[in-house]
Design a protein around this nucleic acid. Sequence first.
RNA 1: GGGCGGUUAGCUCAGUUGGUAGAGCAUCUCGUUUACACCGAGAAUGUCGGCGGUUCGAGACCGUCACCGCCCACCA
Length: 880
Amino acid sequence: MMDKRFDSKSIEVKWYEKWLKSGAFSSDSSSQKKPYVIMMPPPNVTGSLHIGHALTFTIQDILIRFHRMQGFDVLWQPGTDHAGIATQMVVERELAKSNITRHDLGREKFVEKVWEWKEQSGGTITNQLRALGASPDWDKERFTMDEGLSKAVNYVFVKLYKEGLIYRDKRLVNWDPKLLTAISDLEVEQRDTNGKFWYFKYPIQDSDEFLTIATTRPETMLGDTAVAVNPNDERYKHLKGKNVLLPIINRVIPIIFDDYSDPEKGTGAVKITPAHDFNDFEVGKRHNLELINIMNADATINENGGKEFQGLDRFEARDRIIDKLKTLNLFVKEETITHTVPHGDRSNVIVEPWLMDQWYVDAKKMAIPAIKAVEDSKTTFIPKNWDKTYFEWMRNIQPWCVSRQLWWGHRIPAWFGPDNKVFVESSEQEALVAAEAFYGEKVELTQDEDVLDTWFSSALWPFSTLGWPENTDDLTKYYPTSVLVTGFDIIFFWVARMMMMGLHFMDKEVPFKEVYIHALVRDEKGQKMSKSKGNVLDPLDLSSKYGADSLRFTLAAMAAQGRDIKLSEERIAGYRNFSTKIWNGCKFLEFNSCIDNIDKDITNIDLEVNKWIINLYNDLNIKVKTAIKEYKFNDAADALYQFIWKDYCDWYIEFIKPILNNSENLKDLEETKYISINVMKNVLLMLHPIMPYVTEEILENLFKSSNFAISSTWPEPIHNELTSTNSIDLIIKIISSIRSLRVEKNIPPNAKIDILLKNADEHKREIIKNNKSLITNLAKINNITFVSEELTQSENFIISTIDELVLMIPLDGLIDTAAEKNRLNKELSNINNEIDQISKRLNNQMFIDKAPSNVVEEVKNKQKIFNQRKSEIEKALINL
RNA sequence: GGGCGGUUAGCUCAGUUGGUAGAGCAUCUCGUUUACACCGAGAAUGUCGGCGGUUCGAGACCGUCACCGCCCACCA
């Protein structure tokens, strides 16, 4: 005898091994099958699996398993991302434990260390993926820094440079003074911060007047090269052509007139620091202002800030400057404000706009075809409205700063000659050749120290993983890919950039035809999960506690919900119960040796119950297939849950118990064994993409199947020549009514009672007679008698109405008259409400005239039934 | 400031061509009949955020207000 509970843990490892060994995960570019391709968003090699990964990979695995069963040549391309900053930080932290910095090691040694670390722990996340049951083509696993992909990165950089789409520029960058690297706009997070607004007086040259300015960053005044006022600001019109004397530094700087200055803000006069503020930089360009850089890379004040402050940290300098201005009597006031301040998303420190040379991609130009492709529906977003987000960003895209002052990453293939002339070539040899041609002699070159933004290589992922720039079979067959599955948080970081690069390099072909955007997982209160809040749900814990299947089913069931998924552990526990339910239901079939008939060929299906479950199964088959194709995973999960638990286990199994126990009627027995097992087998196959483990285990262990679900074909509807019949639905209604009355009237569970049925027409009598045993068994009654219209209601009956049917239970002396009156009155008032509603509609001539006739008919029919029920209950009340 | 969402049962949420509201969980009552107590049977539960409009008919469509959330840009 099997265990009552299904033990997920013991079978998961076993099945994963079996799948791997069977080659089920492998794609085959030489097969004639049509391709279905998903590029797995490569997780950070430093990472470990969090619940968001679990969601995205579960969805992808469902799609992959589904399409594999649909007969596609499926490629789910796995891999990991070198994650420049993140990985470098991890390894630096490791080194810090032994009091070593990366500078102690030097670049080459450090990078070696990172590779070592990657070899050791880089496989963590992919191993965790296996625990989830993910079925990518592991043989094709790639890493963004492996040889082939690095070659692609190099090729792209050089090509784009030569096309003028990559260039070097000196402008303000977002400088992270902790990580000591530039970061892109997207890596900057604006955070609400409590700060202060300080007002200072700048003395006007050759005058007793002062100009009062306001600032949130007093330290930047050391680099001021102007004060701006609005040309239309009456208060300052008289200052045209004047200068102010910058306090402390004692630099004479002009008062300039520029629309940038907003008379409503602060004092209407704004200090201009072109080297340390993005807006001021633009103003500076317009007015030809000097750019004075006052900071070092670590955000300490440099020599341009004056002896007094040189070497101080920016915040310390700020305090000192305020003090100094106070002593100079130039301090006016301070206000406490909340404002947004840019922070580095990795370092969490305030970033400084800093003037320097960096490499940029001309994103504006590259975005044009990427925008058009979505406008023309070459690529579509699901849900549709995400294309707005995409357009919004793409149409306002800024130059993409792709250089990073890190050591871990793809080193930029640029070499500098003696006079800083740059040579961008795919190798040092080629750069040397180019330099020699340029200078007319052999020269020494030094390679650019910087590496590329990690997203630069990720942007190539859909084709670099397939062997590009070589023209491989994989590339021909699998590009463009079918769908990209991801969260909305990386539409900008990744989706947009893959579109740009894909269209540019792959012969104007989009990298994916569809982009399915799913929600982000939050905790049960809707908060972002984070380690510091301690509200993290670890998918591996959950998986080992409840089984990977339960976690997967939960995520699928919640997948279609809004933007956020609020995940609670209880929900997963609920679906763990579902696996147990399936297991037990199937055990019942096994116990009744239904498997004997799994391959029988029975064509005539006679029993109503069997026809009934077949019809429900056929509906389910279409529903699940459609739902998955439309990315409505919750619909698929709900439909399966409903069918298995309610329809199959609660009703069908109960219905067939007497048939299976009665070996006298061999024909019914054989038919029922055959249908019960085949329907369940097919449902398990349909469930397999969502719950791969339990389905495999049941098919093999209980149903003795020799084929794996993973490589089975998707089941088809069966016996769909059967005309649908509602007879079982009527039976179910009758049983439910009787049960309901029993509980309400406190009729002992084991008391066998009789029931009387009134108002049953020939057709209904036929159905009820044919299925009498179902009713008597499940409602625990003795007998059903049809009675005529004339039978008078007496106090010996309790009644219930099912459409026009009247169900009566004779109960001599057992009726609590008052309670029964109560119940009937309540029912009556419900019915009256319904009748009121219906009458209102039917009395409305406009409704009769304008509504479609079938709707009107429906309402009239309802009216008839409710009126019948009303009169029955009124009769009963009178007789009480 | 620009954009995108949300507001439905105690909780979490479904509800795609407008026909009169559903699921899971939680709650309460009853029950161990040989698949399952991670179970079964039953019960209770809603002015579908407010107001206005379109319509015979609105949870759904339009307008407007309120509250909540997210993204982008900014507050010198």
